[in-house]
């Protein structure tokens, strides 16, 4: 009789790789723990909410005119009306759509350009790197807004697509430089050497091995790029270099200045659009305080000296 030993079934401890979402929830937790970035996230969420539900929130259509012109604030028009007899509050609400989307789209596009150039630049050595170095430094030094103004002047009436393109052309260099510096420090790490010896192609090493280690820097670059994109878009619209028929915060101020709102004393018309631009840009800057603290532990809220 052979006794069959009851072998206790070994509970296989399968170590699951951490879910991809774990990283995001942890990062979001770090951001939420920092009161500055928490405030920024809340403000940003408000603007995104208003932009998405603009048709429901706005009391009138943005281009509906025929109201009393240059009216002061009243129950029917909380922020008054423009010189063309449009409701200022409705224009503000619809204007958020332009700023939020331009900020996100131009921010994402210039971040992508910065990633591709910055990482390849950091990984390669030799003459090619010197050439890229030269080009990036040139783009860093050339003043952005004058360059945008000149390009916008050549591309007559290009509208939003033109503005986004101009912002991306002039805005990628800073991110590329930061990412390059980080790539250079990671390039000599053991895991990169191991990947190289195992025969991975260069593009795979750069984008699969090195890239995931720079998420917080990329996020910081994105928020920075989006902030400057929002400010640049408003600046170009204010100068009348975009499509002045669309309703955005920049064009509201453009029409306000051109219809002498300074003389009619409509301070809300001047105050509100700029405050919205500043608050939206501030929310992204505040979020970046938290992102900075993730990438540079010395900036974390430590004890005071």
């Amino acid at each position: 009789m052979t006794s069959t030993q009851n072998i206790p079934s070994v509970k296989a401890e399968i170590t699951k790789p951490p879910s991809k979402f774990a990283f995001f929830t942890r990062s979001a937790g770090t951001l939420w723990a920092n009161w500055k970035s928490r405030l920024g996230l809340i403000i940003l969420a408000c603007f995104v909410f208003v932009a998405i539900f603009a048709p429901l929130l706005a009391p009138y259509s943005a281009t509906q005119d025929g109201f009393e012109r240059n009216a002061d604030a009243s129950a029917a028009h909380w922020f008054g009306t423009t010189a063309a007899g449009e409701d200022v509050l409705s224009q503000l609400i619809y204007g958020s759509q332009i700023s939020v989307s331009v900020g996100f789209i131009a921010g994402i596009l210039s971040t992508i350009v910065a990633i591709v150039i910055g990482l390849s630049w950091g990984y390669i050595k030799g003459f090619g790197a010197d050439v890229i170095n030269f080009i990036v430094n040139l783009f860093l030094v050339i003043p952005g807004l004058p360059l945008m103004i000149v390009i916008a002047a050549y591309l007559q009436n290009g509208g939003l697509v033109m503005i986004v393109a101009v912002i991306v052309i002039t805005g990628w260099a800073w991110g590329a430089r930061v990412l390059r510096a980080q790539t250079q420090t990671l390039r000599s790490r053991d895991f990169v050497t191991a990947a190289r010896f195992s025969g991975e192609p260069a593009w795979r090493i750069v984008f699969k091995e090195i890239l995931p280690n720079m998420t917080s820097i990329i996020a910081g670059g994105f928020f920075g790029a989006a902030t400057s994109a929002i400010l640049a878009e408003a600046g170009l619209e204010f100068l009348g270099l975009g499509d002045s028929s669309i309703v955005s915060w920049g064009t509201i101020l453009y029409w306000a200045q051109n219809s002498n709102a300074l003389l009619t004393g409509q301070w809300i018309l001047l105050f509100a659009p700029g405050l919205c631009i500043a608050l939206l840009a501030l929310s992204l800057t505040l979020i970046n305080f938290g992102v900075d603290a993730i990438s540079n532990p010395r900036l974390r809220e430590g004890k005071s000296r």
Binding site: G235, L270, G274, I277
Partner: peptide, 12 residues
């Protein structure tokens, strides 16, 4: 203050 658009501060 650094997020204020230049033209807005100027107008105000």
């Amino acid at each position: 203050a650094s997020t204020f658009p230049y033209f807005w501060t100027a107008l105000l």
